[in-house]
Every structure is written in structure tokens, then in C-alpha cells.
Computed example of a mutant assay.
Amino acid sequence: MLAIANVADVLGLPGREGVKSPFGLITRIEDGLPVDALERIARLLAPTDTQFKYRLVPRATFERRKRAAFRLSSEEGMRVARLARVWNLSVEVWGSEEEARNFLFRPHAMLEDRRPVDVVIQSEIGAELVLDILQGLKYGSAA
């Protein structure tokens, strides 16, 4: 299991109360992650793609969230946190952000030639498949 503190850090939440345990992170997501968490993960994964964040939250919804609540819905937050988990392990496995991006944005044979980032965004099961590949690389099995 990935360290909750690392995921919270990727989301820009370190040092805030309630993010010291998995349930603390779940509570933060359910209460609504700040819109900044979405913008942060988008900048980390796709620093040159200003449209990437709209793959996680549609543009109109993003603009509403930014104007009014400044918080993501629970479902949106789960998508962002899921991507943060995968990003965190990708950087750990590949040793650099650039190599992690190369992995995430290149089609992978074990994902039926889909890009890992697309599979992660699509569903929790997809994220687990990508995490399995990364853990296999980290711990020495074929991936």
C-alpha cells in the first residue's frame, strides 16, 4: 500500500489535520478536495497540456467548482486521488517525473495497448491494473 502521506503530498495536502491515515484521506476526499488538487495533479502529469484537467472534470463543471465551492465532488476527488496514487508509484519506480510521464502516456501491451493514464482515469479497476504493473516493475516480476 502506498504511503498516505505521499499521496496527500502529491495532492498538496501535507500537514493538514486528518490526512495521517487512509481514513483521513477518505474523509478529505468525501468532504471535497480543493480544486487546487486537480490543478496540481494536472501540472505534474501533463505540464504542457492545459486541457488535461478537463479529462478528470469537465470544463463547465471545473469552472463552476472554481467559482463557487472551490471543492471537488467526492467522485471527482476519487478520480484525482486515484491518479495521484499511480503518479506517486510511477515516479518511485521510474526515478524521475519525465520517465514516469513516458510510462503513463505510452501504450502498454499489458493494457491491450491502452495508455496507463487513460486506464487510470477510466476506473478504479484500471488503476489497480496499472498499479499491478508498476509493483511488478518495482519488485522484479515481468511487466
Rank of each mutant, 00 (worst) to 15 (best):
E75L: 08
E63Y: 15
F52Y: 15
A84H: 07
A69H: 07
G77N: 03
A68E: 13
Y54F: 15
K66F: 14
S96L: 07
S96D: 08
R55E: 12
R65C: 09
W94D: 06
N88T: 15
E76C: 04
V80P: 10
K66H: 14
E63R: 09
E99S: 13
R55Y: 05
A60V: 11
L83V: 15
L72A: 04
F62V: 02
V86E: 05
S73P: 00
E75Y: 01
L56M: 15
A81F: 05
G95P: 09
R59A: 11
W87A: 02
E76W: 05
R82F: 10
R85Q: 14
M78R: 15
F52P: 03
V80G: 00
R67C: 02
P58I: 11
R59S: 11
A81H: 04
K53Q: 13
E99T: 11
F52K: 05
K53F: 05
P58T: 06
E75S: 13
L56K: 06
V80A: 06
A69P: 00
V93A: 11
L89F: 00
L72V: 03
G95S: 11
S90F: 05
L83K: 01
M78W: 14
R82T: 06
W87V: 06
K66M: 08
A69G: 10
E98A: 14
L89P: 03
V86R: 06
S73I: 01
S73M: 02
E76I: 07
T61R: 11
E97W: 07
P58R: 13
S96R: 06
R65D: 07
E92A: 12
A69N: 04
Y54R: 00
L83F: 07
E75D: 11
L72R: 02
F62W: 15
R67Y: 09
R59G: 03
E92H: 09
L83C: 11
L89N: 06
T61P: 00
V80W: 13
W94G: 01
F52C: 12
R59Y: 08
V93G: 06
R67A: 15
R65F: 12
A69V: 05
V57Y: 02
N88K: 08
E98G: 02
E92W: 03
A60Q: 13
V57Q: 05
R65P: 04
A69C: 00
R65M: 04
G77Y: 01
R79P: 01
V80S: 08
R59M: 12
R59E: 15
S74N: 15
R82Q: 09
M78T: 10
S90C: 06
A69M: 03
S74D: 13
R67M: 05
F62N: 04
P58M: 03
R64Q: 12
E99C: 07
F62L: 05
R59N: 08
R64V: 05
Y54V: 01
S73D: 03
L83H: 04
F62C: 04
W94A: 14
A84Y: 03
V91Q: 10
A84F: 11
S74G: 09
L89H: 00
L72I: 02
N88R: 10
E99L: 14
V86P: 01
R59C: 01
V80F: 12
K53Y: 09
E98M: 10
S96V: 06
E76Y: 09
S73V: 06
S90H: 09
S73A: 11
F52R: 04
F70R: 13
A68M: 10
M78A: 14
G77I: 04
V93F: 13
V93H: 10
E97V: 08
R55H: 08
